[in-house]
Computed example of a mutant assay.
Amino acid sequence: MSGTQGYPYPQVFLVDSGRGPQPSVQPPGMLPCWSFPPAHERVMERGRVRGSRGLGSWSLAIALLFLLLLVFGALGLGAYQIIKLQTQLDGIQQVREMNIEIDGRGPEKQVGDLPETDPNRGKTAGRPAAHVIGRIEKHVSQNTLRWEPKAGRAFTEGGVVYRDGGLQVNETGLYHIYSRVQFEANHCTPTDALVHSVFVRRPGNFKSLTLMEGHREGYCNLGSHGYVWTSGSYLGSTLKLEKQDWLYVNVSHPAMLSHAHHANFFGLHKI
């Protein structure tokens, strides 16, 4: 027990057998004494420390579990995307194989559908049409023009035939006929006139029939002072033609025609 220095200790007398009472001796100074908390408080403090340690362990475990869930979720999403891409690639491959198989069988099926009684079916399936372009010739000796039927954008189809400057149709019907020519030179005379015409020749009829015609007069003033002048003429109309009709183009000055292919052309198509 701890003592309090404020209370004096009782005097102690020493008795000697022969001498009588001795004066009291002052007790020695008391040693310091430290007080400690009660045992109950120490137990509660230890419990709080253990509780805080347990709470920290649970937080760490939850964080680790959350990280594991994120990792597994990312892996699962990646696997799903890979499976989805693989499925799409398989579908594309199947469609491509089907297209190749259909293309390989197409010609056989088409040939099988053609009847034996019509071997020429498909050769003239297109609508009758033709477009021919100007031919560059150094020496022109006649007014009926010659054309280029295959070069560039020139073509003939649907049974239309080109020969010696003429286009022949193989069906009777309405046709849109057109022609354009371009003249150019650096000299002229006031009496010159530019003539551009389209005519037809029919079997059994030796006389040509003019279908369209254009005149250009008074153009000479365009070539004054020695400059090059140009003048174009376009004809177009919808007319009825008969089977085996031949159509031609005439010009009055073939030597003055431009050498540009796109400047001179002639064509028709069935309506």
Rank of each mutant, 00 (worst) to 15 (best):
A185M: 06
S237Q: 12
G18C: 07
P10V: 15
D113Q: 10
L69K: 05
Y234W: 13
D118G: 11
E116L: 10
K150E: 15
F72T: 04
P115N: 04
F265Q: 01
N264S: 09
G56V: 15
G56F: 06
S59Q: 07
V195G: 05
T144F: 01
Y227R: 11
L268G: 06
Q26S: 04
G214D: 06
I100H: 10
A260V: 14
S59I: 14
R180C: 10
A39C: 09
L55V: 11
Y219G: 03
V181Y: 03
S258F: 01
L89S: 13
R46W: 04
G112Q: 15
L85F: 06
E171Y: 08
H259D: 08
V111W: 05
G104W: 10
G51C: 06
Q11S: 14
G232H: 04
E171A: 09
V200E: 00
N205V: 10
S231C: 05
H187C: 07
T117Y: 15
G204F: 03
Q5F: 12
L14F: 15
F66Y: 03
P8R: 11
R53G: 12
V71G: 06
G122N: 05
T156R: 00
S237M: 11
N186K: 07
A154C: 01
S231D: 03
V71S: 03
R216H: 12
G47R: 10
A63L: 04
L211K: 03
I82S: 07
Q94M: 14
D164G: 09
G104Q: 15
R163H: 09
H215T: 14
E45Y: 06
E97T: 01
G165M: 01
Q110C: 12
D164H: 06
H225I: 11
T172L: 00
E213M: 09
V181M: 03
T4D: 15
T230I: 09
G112C: 12
S197C: 10
H215C: 09
F36K: 02
V12N: 00
Q93I: 13
G204Y: 05
Y219D: 02
L239M: 05
L145T: 07
S57F: 12
Y234N: 06
L209R: 05
H131M: 03
A61M: 15
P28I: 07
Y80D: 11
I83T: 13
V198E: 00
V251C: 06
G236H: 05
A39V: 13
G73D: 05
G267Q: 01
R19V: 12
A39G: 08
R19G: 10
H253W: 11
T144M: 05
N264H: 12
H176D: 01
T144I: 01
